[in-house]
Design a protein around this nucleic acid. Structure first.
Lengths: 215, 215
DNA sequence: ACCTGAACACCGTTCAAGT
DNA sequence: ACCTGAACACCGTTCAAGT
């Protein structure tokens, strides 16, 4: 590797490198020194572009949020809501660190507003009153956040053989007398954990609740 | 402070001390060395009771899960579901670190099964088929997880004056042409973010969807 | 078994200095 | 402005040693 302490450094390059490291090793193992090493610069070089680690976190989150596709026009509003929620979930699954970035840092930046704008615009156009639109938006967003977070967690569990073994043993050691429902439904729980179908199940519950309310 | 390197140390004492520190400073600032200092022992004393930091995290999560109250009997099943979800949310709000512990660590332990048992038992008794019970359980759990996580985040934001100021500025600087819905609904969003009412709004949407399906 | 102390390989960040 | 290098106050964890 040749030395590259030229003018090649930029905020954008740092964000892209940070994102790569987060996705490769998980957001927990991410470090400023790791980014600096990857870019073959000293750790302090990054401080020219970002005030501190949290500032870099914000920039990465903002970059990820900008990847969200726009709302499909010209379709009924329930389909629009479904599309927004699905693409938000997909973005989180493709970039698992996004969940941690959303849950651990204050909000800021126009990209976050852009996400809210899409869903709120759809709901307002569908005739939702201001308060109902706001409440519905928050409900949908938190459902997507929670289910994606849980899905990522479970996928990580399945990937780690040791963790997966411990979970299987833990479930199989449960007494059927003390935990009848868990023991009976263990196969169903394993089969229905994660996946598009599970996500749509909850999303459809929310949408049918909404449609019952607007009718 | 007198020295206490006697036989006063125990797994239970360490868990309680760790929990105190997590709640005081946030789960992010928590460290093994901090717990050891609080207990006035060397950092290595903890390794007699826990294999590593993650092992202690699991113990704390298990302890918190054991605090969940039992399901109220002798009421209609929608009220039972509501009660379980509300008390789970309340537990998360009272112990914000629980959300991070659930989202960042593999599952294990009987306490986690106990939580699932309550909700699954209610749904099975209400006549839900195995797959529907499993899917509904996951949907409800992820909704509680996501909304509590978001609520904790927002509460932290409001507590930190600097973060709160940045958020206000960020919202006020949005152009009404680019973000019409966000600008219009900003007061509604602020007013409806968090709180029992917002949580129940989404929970009722899910429940009315469920009741429409079982009828 | 229960706990200590030194050591290792890491962190984020400050400070003073170079260009 | 852009980047370096040394230093500080932290981490989790290993290892060898004490009782």
């Amino acid at each position: 590797m040749a030395r590259t302490p030229r003018n090649t450094l930029s905020a954008d390059l740092i964000v892209r490198t940070a994102l790569e490291l987060m996705e490769a090793k998980g957001a927990g193992a991410f470090s400023l020194r790791g980014v600096a090493a990857e870019l073959e610069v000293g750790p302090m070089a990054l401080y020219t572009y970002f005030r501190n680690k949290d500032d870099l976190y914000d920039a990465v989150r903002n970059h990820l949020m900008s990847l969200l596709p726009p709302v499909p026009p010209e379709v009924p509003w329930p389909d629009q809501v479904r599309a927004v929620c699905r693409s938000l979930r997909l973005l989180m699954l493709q970039h698992p660190c996004l969940v941690q970035l959303l849950g651990g840092r204050p909000l800021s930046g126009h990209e976050t507003a852009r996400v809210a704008e899409g869903l709120l615009g759809v709901l307002r156009a569908a005739g939702f009153a201001p308060e109902a639109a706001a409440r519905t938006h928050t409900t949908l967003f938190t459902y997507v956040l929670g289910s994606a977070s849980w899905e990522i967690q479970m996928a990580a569990e399945r990937r780690d053989p040791e963790a997966w073994r411990r979970l299987r043993v833990s479930i199989e050691s449960l007494s059927a007398r003390e935990f009848p429902a868990v023991v009976e439904l263990a196969p169903e729980l394993a089969r229905t954990t994660g996946g598009d179908e599970q996500f749509d199940y909850g999303l459809d519950l929310l949408l049918s609740g909404l449609q019952a309310r607007t009718a």
